[in-house]
Amino acid sequence: MTELLEATAQPTPDPPTPDPMVPRVFRVERTRQDTRDTYTLELSPLDGEPLRFAPGQFTMLQAWGIGEVPISISGDPHGSGLLEHTIRNVGNVTRALVHTSRGATVGVRGPFGTGWEVERGAGGDVVFIVGGIGLAPLRPAILHVVRHRDQYGRVVLLYGARTPDDILFAPDLEHWQDDCGIDVAVTVDNAPHSWRGRVGFVTSLIPRAGFDPLRTTAYVCGPEVMMRSSALALRDRGVAADRIRLSMERSMKCGIGLCGHCQLRELFLCVDGPVLGFDRLEPLMSRWEL
């Protein structure tokens, strides 16, 4: 029993630095372009102390003198010690980050926020529902399940991307499907004639995913409207709202519940979230501009 617990346990997240507003310095070891606009950075800490995190947590990542943004961790929680961040180039800070050259440094604060708590889904079926770049925050959770595959029942990954060219981590998807006992279903919004796969919204994959709603935990990550319609579809099929976990995105300046930007009514999404149950989120996701 003890052994099992140890095997299942997540690495304990690092305690915050003495002043959580002061960053640690990490060096860019590798960068990889994943898609047209998305890059993965592998970072090593200058002080040599790997950053331990729970799947679903994020860091505040900064390009010196330019700015800082919350970016979820996309690497293996049991991995090599390199910190992996998958970043979409959508603004001036992310542009600077993805173009940081090898050997240069960036600032890292964190890890912050709640995790997926994927170990709590052990013993039952698991459904990952992913939209777009949402695969990056879920990747550590998927890797955890892969590592502890025998503790889970049926595991499915339903992934919606914009076009075939926007599909992230394609080698991972193939590996998970072929070697790891995960049923991976990919669908895209639009595709050229040459595409042999599915076209359609990700929710259309739910009816044929073949999980047992009563013993399923779902982890949903993507744009808010996509998460909401996925969560409703899951609940309509009988998955308990508190077992549908979503990761919310809002503006964040501090990551530690002080700056106020990420508030969703009574929640500070940087410390109360970003991962929360649909039972808690549903009333807050159904009102515009809350």
Partner: peptide, 16 residues
């Protein structure tokens, strides 16, 4: 169901 899915895709939710 298809109309709902089509509307979702019209939003281009994964776009910038």
């Amino acid at each position: 169901r298809r109309l709902e899915a089509a509307r979702m895709r019209m939003l281009d939710v994964y776009g910038v």
